Every structure is written in structure tokens, then in C-alpha cells.
Amino acid sequence: MRTNIIIDDTLMQRAMEVSGLKTKKDVVEKAIIEFVERRTRKDLKELRGKIQFAGNYDYRAMREGRK
């Protein structure tokens, strides 16, 4: 979709620096993708009580492998 928008030049420049993207179009597309992904993720509070862990699940043992 073609559209014209006014974006603060300083903000756009900062976004390009932080993201490493080369064009304004790429920055805007990336921002929209991240916005949609964030808004459509399940809230952890909604999952409370819906996930059952195995009785022998040991989170400490799982963390040992991350060092």
C-alpha cells in the first residue's frame, strides 16, 4: 500500500542507526512487523493454569546447560 506519512527526521535517523537498515521504507516495514508481532503475542497472564509441566520437570537442571 502506498502512503505518505510525516515522521520526525531525528527519530527516523535513530531508527535507521539502531536497526542497521538502509532505507526509510525498510525501517517502517520492520516497525510495523514488530508492532503486529508484539500485539498478537499471548499475554503470559492469559496462560496461567493452562500449561501443565511433567511431574519430574526440573528447571534447575535445564538451566545448567545454558552456562
Rank of each mutant, 00 (worst) to 15 (best):
M1V: 13
M1D: 05
R2M: 04
R2Y: 04
T3E: 06
N4C: 09
N4W: 05
N4S: 13
I5D: 01
I5R: 13
I5F: 03
I5Y: 00
I5K: 11
I6D: 09
I6H: 07
I6P: 06
I7Y: 01
I7M: 11
I7C: 07
I7V: 14
D9W: 10
L11I: 10
M12H: 06
M12K: 11
Q13L: 04
Q13W: 02
Q13K: 11
Q13N: 15
R14T: 13
R14K: 15
R14G: 07
A15P: 09
M16A: 14
M16R: 14
M16Y: 06
V18Q: 09
L21S: 02
L21V: 04
L21R: 09
L21W: 03
K22H: 14
K22S: 13
T23E: 06
K24N: 12
K25Y: 12
K25I: 15
V27L: 00
V27S: 00
V28M: 04
V28S: 04
V28G: 07
E29C: 05
E29H: 06
K30L: 11
K30Y: 01
K30G: 10
K30A: 10
A31I: 04
A31H: 00
A31W: 02
A31Y: 02
I32N: 08
I33D: 00
I33M: 04
I33N: 03
I33G: 02
I33E: 02
E34G: 05
E34Y: 09
E34T: 12
E34L: 10
F35N: 14
F35P: 03
F35A: 09
E37C: 00
E37R: 15
E37F: 01
E37S: 03
R38V: 03
R38S: 11
R39F: 04
R39D: 04
R41K: 14
R41L: 10
D43G: 08
D43Y: 09
D43W: 09
L44H: 12
K45C: 00
E46A: 15
L47Q: 06
L47H: 03
R48W: 02
R48F: 08
G49W: 00
G49S: 06
G49R: 00
K50T: 12
I51N: 00
Q52A: 12
F53I: 14
A54S: 01
A54L: 09
A54I: 03
N56I: 01
Y57W: 12
Y57K: 00
Y57F: 15
D58Q: 11
Y59L: 09
Y59K: 12
Y59M: 11
R60D: 01
R60V: 01
A61T: 02
M62A: 15
M62G: 10
M62S: 13
R63Q: 10
G65D: 07
G65V: 13
G65Y: 06
G65A: 11
G65H: 08
R66A: 01
R66I: 15
R66G: 05
R66M: 11
R66P: 01
K67V: 08
K67S: 11
K67Y: 05
